[in-house]
Design a protein around this nucleic acid. Structure first.
Lengths: 150, 150
DNA sequence: TATTGTTATACTCTATAACTATA
DNA sequence: TATAGTTATAGAGTATAACAATA
């Protein structure tokens, strides 16, 4: 196994390591996650829950996907009764999205009962390691944000 | 934004946060990464570089994908001249995979010159934050490994 | 004209099931 | 029979290009 510590202070080397480990972790999580909801739908629904109602374009921007991609994701959420579309009364081009009670319940169930694989793995770590991952989770979220200067 | 710190010591809540942030980071990295190689090919090639020659089955197991999936990945690497197939001289069913010099060069170029987006983002962090991410990268790799008891 | 969102189309990544060749 | 790998097929997730409706 390559020693990640050798690249710690070198952003390019860390980038290379992170790219691999994040990709593998994402793949593994997808494989093990709750069959009731895919990671893509989960992430979008989570955003609707935490940010409140958003337009389709805002949601696409927040998730760093193109609008047609978000159209599909939204369609899947609406078909599943997890989100609801509401036309904007003033601007006929705009669609507002909101999580439904059913969507909220699904997220609650997911948090309580699912992610079993990941939860089990995390339980094998020390409290310090979980603290570290929690802070890393915030850093990853910051890295994945849209360019501040874009 | 949901406060991740509230879930730090709770493995299930951390699992939920990590699932979202890792998924988003993976998506963003794919979108921004070197157009010359996809994350899936990069990860497999990286494994061949660090572990040396492996059979197709070993590689599939290491990457946590099914064998048919790895067959496709390998085919893409071989088509691109990045890896080489060699039949096992003793067991006719087995195929050995090895990285080619061209594959090694591509990984070097990727490390040096690409991952620009990610490198730039990492440069905006403090040294401490990069240290933290480096250790998190190891933890994520451990989490994504095959079950120790499977 | 510019913007919001959708439809059409295509490519990547992944899986399961069935198959071939070899042991 | 069992194992290693491939082929066939399907589904999820994403993108770009072209379009419709509205501003």
């Amino acid at each position: 196994m390559r020693a990640t510590t050798t690249t710690t202070r070198d952003p390019a080397g860390l980038a290379s390591d992170l790219r691999v480990s994040v990709w593998r972790a994402a793949r593994r999580m997808r494989r093990e996650s709750d069959p009731g909801i895919t990671p893509t739908l989960h992430a979008a629904l989570f955003t609707l829950e935490t940010h409140g109602p958003m337009t389709a374009g805002q949601l696409a921007s927040h998730e760093s996907v193109q609008k047609p991609t978000m159209t599909r994701t939204i369609q899947a959420l609406v078909d599943g009764g997890l989100a609801r579309r509401t036309p904007d009364p003033l601007d006929g081009r705009v669609t507002w999205l909101a999580i439904t009670p059913q969507g909220t319940r699904l997220l609650q169930r997911t948090r309580q009962r699912t992610d079993e694989f990941l939860t089990k793995r995390l339980e094998t770590l020390t409290v310090e390691e979980r603290d570290l991952l929690a802070r890393a989770s915030d850093l990853l979220a910051r890295i994945a944000e849209k360019d501040p200067d874009a």
